[in-house]
């Protein structure tokens, strides 16, 4: 146990310190990479809440990244170019608040529909809803449609400056640690136990008197909001938002991170995100066709890890 806590502390310290150190030594590239890593890891942590702890396989969580990013980009766009005075602002609190609100509402509305069904239906419907958001942003010419939206100005907060790469990275890393802690707390709470029970045997939970739909919906909304938050950071990081962020391949990558890292664990999504970023980085420097080895790897893992990737899923009751 002691050793495990030590290793976990070491991972967190490394995530925070190594990129800063490399940046200080004149390799800002790694700071960028780590910022992206932290943002994707936040989304993976959010997805893990429903996929890992709740057993709900969502193939549409990239939608929340997109919604979060546009919630930053659209107010900034109007602040610069006029129109929609009600939301035209660069105030970070408003933008991030909007990101949480919009992703929460979207999760609530879509959750009402997709949580009525299970299994494959759920996978397909989450996919379809994400695609709906994708086409929605493609169709809105004002926000760049297909070409996307360039944010010329980042979110403004007191005391911190998002234009400073070091500060932005630090914010992202600290946010990641906070979200990991948050989901850890939730997973250990009474709510988390109910969620694990639903994953384990939903019918029995209903027979015991739990309105499982409501609990799943709550988890689904929280998960969506975490991903929306991650999207708001992503918008600030890339300063360029496009429907491409919502492409279902992005949703697939998020799933890959969660599952590869180990579902229903606190550190799994982070480890998965690290693996993904490293793979992507290494493979894409070797070849522009890096999706080929990546796809083969994915197939290989699914086929040859005994019992498939799902076998790596520890049972809900397992303590880390």
């Amino acid at each position: 146990m002691q050793k495990k806590v030590f290793v976990q502390g070491l991972i967190l310290a490394a995530v925070l310190i190594v990129p800063l150190l490399l940046n200080y030594m004149g390799h800002p590239f790694y700071l960028d990479l780590a910022t992206r890593l932290c943002i994707l890891a936040i989304a993976a942590v959010g997805l893990n809440l429903i996929l890992g702890y709740g057993g709900m396989i969502s193939f549409g969580h990239a939608a929340y990244l997109g919604l979060g990013a546009y919630a930053v980009g659209i107010p900034a766009h109007h602040w610069l170019y006029g129109g929609m005075d009600a939301i035209a602002t660069t105030n970070g609190f408003v933008q991030f608040g909007l990101a949480l609100l919009v992703s929460g509402i979207f999760a609530l509305l879509t959750g009402l529909v997709c949580l009525k069904v299970k299994g494959v239906y759920f996978i397909m419907i989450t996919m379809a809803f994400a695609q709906m958001v994708y086409y929605l942003f493609i169709s809105i010419a004002e926000y760049g449609g297909d070409d996307g939206l360039v944010i010329d100005t980042r979110s403004e907060f007191p005391l911190v400056n998002f234009d400073d790469a070091t500060q932005l990275f630090t914010i992202c890393a600290v946010s990641l640690f906070f979200v990991m802690w948050l989901v850890w707390r939730i997973s250990k709470s009474q709510f988390g136990m109910v969620l694990a029970g639903i994953k384990g045997n939903e019918q029995r939970m209903i027979a015991m008197g739990y309105n499982t739909f409501a609990y799943k919906l709550a988890a689904y909304v929280i998960s969506g909001m975490i991903c929306g938050f991650s999207g708001a950071l992503l918008g600030n990081f890339t300063t360029f938002i496009s429907p491409e962020m919502i492409d279902w391949a992005r949703s697939g990558e998020l799933m890959f991170m969660v599952i590869l890292g180990g579902v229903a664990t606190t550190f799994g999504p982070l480890l998965g995100a690290i693996t993904f970023i490293i793979l992507e980085e290494v493979l894409s420097t070797i070849t522009i066709y890096w999706h080929l080895p990546f796809g083969l790897l994915l197939i290989g893992v699914v086929m040859f890890v005994k019992g498939g990737l799902s076998a790596l899923i520890p049972k809900a009751g397992d303590k880390e």
Partner: peptide
């Protein structure tokens, strides 16, 4: 996941 890999 397997068929997603196949798509890639």
């Amino acid at each position: 996941l397997g068929t997603f890999g196949a798509i890639l």
